[in-house]
Protein backbone atom coordinates (compact mmCIF):
# COMPACT_ATOMS: atom_id res chain seq x y z
CA UNK A 1 0.00 0.00 0.00
CA UNK A 2 2.72 2.38 1.10
CA UNK A 3 4.80 1.45 -1.91
CA UNK A 4 1.86 2.04 -4.20
CA UNK A 5 1.29 5.51 -2.71
CA UNK A 6 4.92 6.46 -3.09
CA UNK A 7 4.96 5.19 -6.65
CA UNK A 8 1.91 7.12 -7.70
CA UNK A 9 3.17 10.29 -6.02
CA UNK A 10 6.41 10.03 -7.93
CA UNK A 11 4.44 9.32 -11.08
CA UNK A 12 2.43 12.51 -10.63
CA UNK A 13 5.59 14.58 -10.14
CA UNK A 14 7.11 13.24 -13.32
CA UNK A 15 3.84 13.67 -15.17
CA UNK A 16 3.81 17.31 -14.14
CA UNK A 17 7.40 17.70 -15.37
CA UNK A 18 7.24 15.89 -18.63
CA UNK A 19 3.62 16.00 -19.83
CA UNK A 20 4.03 19.39 -21.59
CA UNK A 21 7.18 18.20 -23.35
CA UNK A 22 5.48 14.95 -24.28
CA UNK A 23 2.48 16.80 -25.71
CA UNK A 24 4.81 18.99 -27.75
CA UNK A 25 6.65 16.00 -29.18
CA UNK A 26 3.42 14.12 -29.91
CA UNK A 27 1.83 17.05 -31.74
CA UNK A 28 4.90 17.48 -33.91
CA UNK A 29 3.78 14.22 -35.51
CA UNK A 30 0.05 15.12 -35.64
CA UNK A 31 -1.48 15.28 -39.10
CA UNK A 32 -3.52 18.43 -38.48
CA UNK A 33 -2.61 22.06 -38.77
CA UNK A 34 -4.83 23.67 -36.16
CA UNK A 35 -6.81 21.15 -34.21
CA UNK A 36 -5.48 19.89 -30.92
CA UNK A 37 -6.86 16.43 -31.50
CA UNK A 38 -4.96 13.46 -32.88
CA UNK A 39 -5.50 13.10 -36.63
CA UNK A 40 -2.91 10.51 -37.47
CA UNK A 41 0.87 10.20 -37.74
CA UNK A 42 2.87 12.28 -40.20
CA UNK A 43 6.46 13.40 -40.94
CA UNK A 44 4.95 16.38 -42.78
CA UNK A 45 6.08 19.08 -40.34
CA UNK A 46 9.61 17.80 -40.26
CA UNK A 47 9.65 17.82 -44.06
CA UNK A 48 8.39 21.39 -44.32
CA UNK A 49 10.86 22.38 -41.62
CA UNK A 50 13.76 21.03 -43.65
CA UNK A 51 12.44 22.81 -46.71
CA UNK A 52 12.40 26.14 -44.89
CA UNK A 53 15.80 27.51 -45.87
CA UNK A 54 15.48 30.70 -43.91
CA UNK A 55 14.82 28.78 -40.72
CA UNK A 56 17.72 26.44 -41.41
CA UNK A 57 20.05 29.40 -41.87
CA UNK A 58 18.93 30.78 -38.52
CA UNK A 59 19.47 27.37 -36.92
CA UNK A 60 22.96 27.26 -38.40
CA UNK A 61 23.64 30.72 -36.92
CA UNK A 62 22.65 29.45 -33.52
CA UNK A 63 24.86 26.37 -33.80
CA UNK A 64 27.81 28.53 -34.86
CA UNK A 65 27.24 30.93 -31.98
CA UNK A 66 26.87 28.07 -29.52
CA UNK A 67 30.02 26.33 -30.78
CA UNK A 68 32.21 29.43 -30.57
CA UNK A 69 30.85 30.73 -27.28
CA UNK A 70 30.93 27.30 -25.60
CA UNK A 71 34.52 26.76 -26.71
CA UNK A 72 35.75 30.16 -25.56
CA UNK A 73 33.77 29.97 -22.31
CA UNK A 74 35.23 26.52 -21.63
CA UNK A 75 38.76 27.73 -22.25
CA UNK A 76 38.40 30.76 -19.98
CA UNK A 77 36.28 28.95 -17.39
CA UNK A 78 38.76 26.09 -17.05
CA UNK A 79 41.66 28.50 -16.58
CA UNK A 80 39.58 30.40 -14.00
CA UNK A 81 38.89 27.21 -12.05
CA UNK A 82 42.53 26.08 -12.14
CA UNK A 83 43.69 29.54 -11.07
CA UNK A 84 41.23 29.59 -8.20
CA UNK A 85 42.36 26.15 -7.12
CA UNK A 86 46.12 26.34 -7.58
CA UNK A 87 47.12 29.86 -6.60
CA UNK A 88 46.62 32.12 -3.67
CA UNK A 89 46.10 35.77 -4.52
CA UNK A 90 44.40 38.89 -3.28
CA UNK A 91 40.66 38.94 -3.96
CA UNK A 92 40.41 35.21 -4.62
CA UNK A 93 37.31 34.71 -2.48
CA UNK A 94 35.67 37.73 -4.04
CA UNK A 95 36.32 36.38 -7.53
CA UNK A 96 34.88 33.03 -6.56
CA UNK A 97 31.78 34.68 -5.12
CA UNK A 98 31.33 36.78 -8.24
CA UNK A 99 31.01 33.60 -10.30
CA UNK A 100 27.87 32.77 -8.37
CA UNK A 101 26.58 36.29 -8.74
CA UNK A 102 26.63 35.83 -12.52
CA UNK A 103 24.97 32.42 -12.24
CA UNK A 104 22.24 33.67 -9.93
CA UNK A 105 21.54 37.12 -11.31
CA UNK A 106 18.28 37.29 -13.29
CA UNK A 107 18.68 37.04 -17.06
CA UNK A 108 16.76 40.23 -17.51
CA UNK A 109 19.29 42.15 -15.40
CA UNK A 110 22.18 40.58 -17.30
CA UNK A 111 20.54 41.39 -20.64
CA UNK A 112 19.88 45.02 -19.84
CA UNK A 113 23.28 45.64 -18.27
CA UNK A 114 25.07 44.03 -21.23
CA UNK A 115 22.98 46.10 -23.62
CA UNK A 116 23.89 49.30 -21.78
CA UNK A 117 27.55 48.27 -21.83
CA UNK A 118 27.59 47.51 -25.56
CA UNK A 119 25.71 50.65 -26.47
CA UNK A 120 27.97 52.84 -24.38
CA UNK A 121 30.99 51.18 -26.02
CA UNK A 122 29.28 51.83 -29.36
CA UNK A 123 29.56 48.19 -30.42
CA UNK A 124 27.16 47.40 -33.27
CA UNK A 125 24.64 44.82 -32.06
CA UNK A 126 24.95 41.50 -33.86
CA UNK A 127 27.15 38.40 -33.83
CA UNK A 128 29.95 39.89 -31.71
CA UNK A 129 27.72 41.26 -28.98
CA UNK A 130 25.80 37.98 -28.86
CA UNK A 131 29.08 36.09 -28.61
CA UNK A 132 30.39 38.26 -25.76
CA UNK A 133 27.09 37.94 -23.90
CA UNK A 134 26.95 34.17 -24.30
CA UNK A 135 30.56 33.74 -23.15
CA UNK A 136 29.73 35.87 -20.12
CA UNK A 137 26.82 33.78 -18.92
CA UNK A 138 28.41 30.40 -19.81
CA UNK A 139 31.82 30.99 -18.23
CA UNK A 140 30.78 30.71 -14.55
CA UNK A 141 29.01 27.41 -15.22
CA UNK A 142 32.18 25.96 -16.70
CA UNK A 143 34.32 27.37 -13.88
CA UNK A 144 32.03 25.93 -11.21
CA UNK A 145 31.86 22.51 -12.92
CA UNK A 146 35.63 22.25 -13.31
CA UNK A 147 36.27 23.62 -9.82
CA UNK A 148 33.95 20.97 -8.43
CA UNK A 149 36.12 18.26 -9.85
CA UNK A 150 39.30 19.99 -8.68
CA UNK A 151 38.09 20.24 -5.09
CA UNK A 152 38.18 16.45 -4.84
CA UNK A 153 41.62 16.39 -6.43
CA UNK A 154 44.60 14.71 -4.77
CA UNK A 155 47.20 17.49 -4.36
CA UNK A 156 50.02 15.01 -4.14
CA UNK A 157 49.51 14.22 -7.84
CA UNK A 158 50.75 17.66 -8.85
CA UNK A 159 53.50 17.41 -6.26
CA UNK A 160 54.52 14.03 -7.64
CA UNK A 161 54.66 15.50 -11.14
CA UNK A 162 56.93 18.31 -9.93
CA UNK A 163 59.05 15.85 -8.01
CA UNK A 164 59.55 13.90 -11.23
CA UNK A 165 60.76 17.01 -13.02
CA UNK A 166 57.62 18.53 -14.52
CA UNK A 167 57.33 22.32 -14.83
CA UNK A 168 54.07 24.15 -14.04
CA UNK A 169 53.00 23.91 -17.67
CA UNK A 170 53.86 20.23 -18.08
CA UNK A 171 52.04 19.44 -14.83
CA UNK A 172 48.97 21.25 -16.14
CA UNK A 173 49.18 19.70 -19.58
CA UNK A 174 49.97 16.11 -18.63
CA UNK A 175 48.41 15.62 -15.19
CA UNK A 176 45.79 18.25 -14.35
CA UNK A 177 44.13 18.63 -17.74
CA UNK A 178 43.69 14.91 -18.57
CA UNK A 179 42.15 14.31 -15.16
CA UNK A 180 39.89 17.35 -15.53
CA UNK A 181 38.86 16.46 -19.07
CA UNK A 182 35.46 14.95 -18.15
CA UNK A 183 34.53 18.13 -16.27
CA UNK A 184 35.87 20.32 -19.08
CA UNK A 185 33.78 18.48 -21.68
CA UNK A 186 30.74 18.53 -19.41
CA UNK A 187 31.23 22.28 -19.02
CA UNK A 188 31.41 22.66 -22.76
CA UNK A 189 28.20 20.68 -23.31
CA UNK A 190 26.45 22.71 -20.62
CA UNK A 191 27.59 25.95 -22.27
CA UNK A 192 26.49 24.73 -25.67
CA UNK A 193 22.94 24.02 -24.47
CA UNK A 194 22.76 27.24 -22.48
CA UNK A 195 23.78 29.21 -25.53
CA UNK A 196 21.47 27.29 -27.89
CA UNK A 197 18.29 28.06 -25.98
CA UNK A 198 18.90 31.46 -24.43
CA UNK A 199 16.12 33.92 -25.21
CA UNK A 200 16.11 36.71 -22.67
CA UNK A 201 19.71 37.90 -22.74
CA UNK A 202 19.98 37.36 -26.49
CA UNK A 203 16.81 39.39 -27.01
CA UNK A 204 18.54 42.46 -25.60
CA UNK A 205 21.92 42.18 -27.29
CA UNK A 206 20.94 40.88 -30.74
CA UNK A 207 20.84 42.98 -33.86
CA UNK A 208 19.12 42.74 -37.24
CA UNK A 209 22.20 41.31 -38.96
CA UNK A 210 22.37 38.01 -37.09
CA UNK A 211 19.21 36.08 -36.26
CA UNK A 212 19.30 33.12 -33.90
CA UNK A 213 16.93 30.24 -33.40
CA UNK A 214 15.37 30.86 -29.97
CA UNK A 215 14.45 34.40 -30.93
CA UNK A 216 13.15 33.25 -34.31
CA UNK A 217 10.92 30.67 -32.62
CA UNK A 218 9.74 33.31 -30.20
CA UNK A 219 8.67 35.58 -33.04
CA UNK A 220 7.03 32.68 -34.92
CA UNK A 221 4.98 31.70 -31.87
CA UNK A 222 3.54 35.19 -31.52
CA UNK A 223 1.33 34.54 -34.54
CA UNK A 224 0.23 31.13 -33.30
CA UNK A 225 2.01 27.83 -32.68
CA UNK A 226 2.54 26.09 -35.96
CA UNK A 227 3.29 22.36 -36.03
CA UNK A 228 6.68 23.20 -37.61
CA UNK A 229 7.62 24.91 -34.38
CA UNK A 230 6.64 21.76 -32.53
CA UNK A 231 8.87 19.76 -34.82
CA UNK A 232 11.75 22.22 -34.39
CA UNK A 233 11.40 22.19 -30.60
CA UNK A 234 11.29 18.40 -30.57
CA UNK A 235 14.55 18.31 -32.53
CA UNK A 236 16.17 20.77 -30.13
CA UNK A 237 14.88 18.74 -27.22
CA UNK A 238 16.46 15.64 -28.70
CA UNK A 239 19.83 17.35 -29.08
CA UNK A 240 19.68 18.76 -25.55
CA UNK A 241 18.77 15.36 -24.16
CA UNK A 242 21.76 13.75 -25.85
CA UNK A 243 24.04 16.47 -24.48
CA UNK A 244 22.68 16.17 -20.93
CA UNK A 245 23.16 12.42 -21.05
CA UNK A 246 26.70 12.86 -22.37
CA UNK A 247 27.55 15.35 -19.63
CA UNK A 248 26.08 13.07 -16.99
CA UNK A 249 28.02 10.11 -18.34
CA UNK A 250 31.29 12.08 -18.33
CA UNK A 251 30.86 13.43 -14.80
CA UNK A 252 30.13 10.01 -13.36
CA UNK A 253 32.55 8.91 -10.66
CA UNK A 254 35.21 6.97 -12.45
CA UNK A 255 37.02 4.13 -10.73
CA UNK A 256 40.59 5.23 -10.13
Amino acid sequence: MNRWLKGSYLGLVYLFFYLPIGVLAVFSFNDSKYRLTWQGFTWRWYESLLANEELLQVALNSVLLALVSATLATLLGTLTAVTLYRYRFFGKKLLFGLLYVVILSPDIVMGISLLILFVSLQLPLGFWTLLLAHITFCLPFVAVTVYGRLSGFDDTLTEAARDLGASEWVTFRRVLLPLLMPAVIAGWLLSFTLSMDDVIISYFVTGPTFEILPLKIYSMVRIGVKPEVNALCTLMLGITLIMVLAAHFLLREQPT
Binding site: D154, T156, L157, E159, A160, A161, V175, L179, T256
Partner: peptide
Protein backbone atom coordinates in the same frame (compact mmCIF):
# COMPACT_ATOMS: atom_id res chain seq x y z
CA UNK B 1 54.43 9.57 -1.35
CA UNK B 2 52.33 8.15 1.43
CA UNK B 3 49.30 8.00 -0.87
CA UNK B 4 51.56 6.75 -3.72
CA UNK B 5 50.23 9.63 -5.91
CA UNK B 6 50.20 7.48 -9.05
CA UNK B 7 48.68 9.18 -12.07
CA UNK B 8 45.33 7.40 -12.45
Amino acid sequence: FQSYALFP
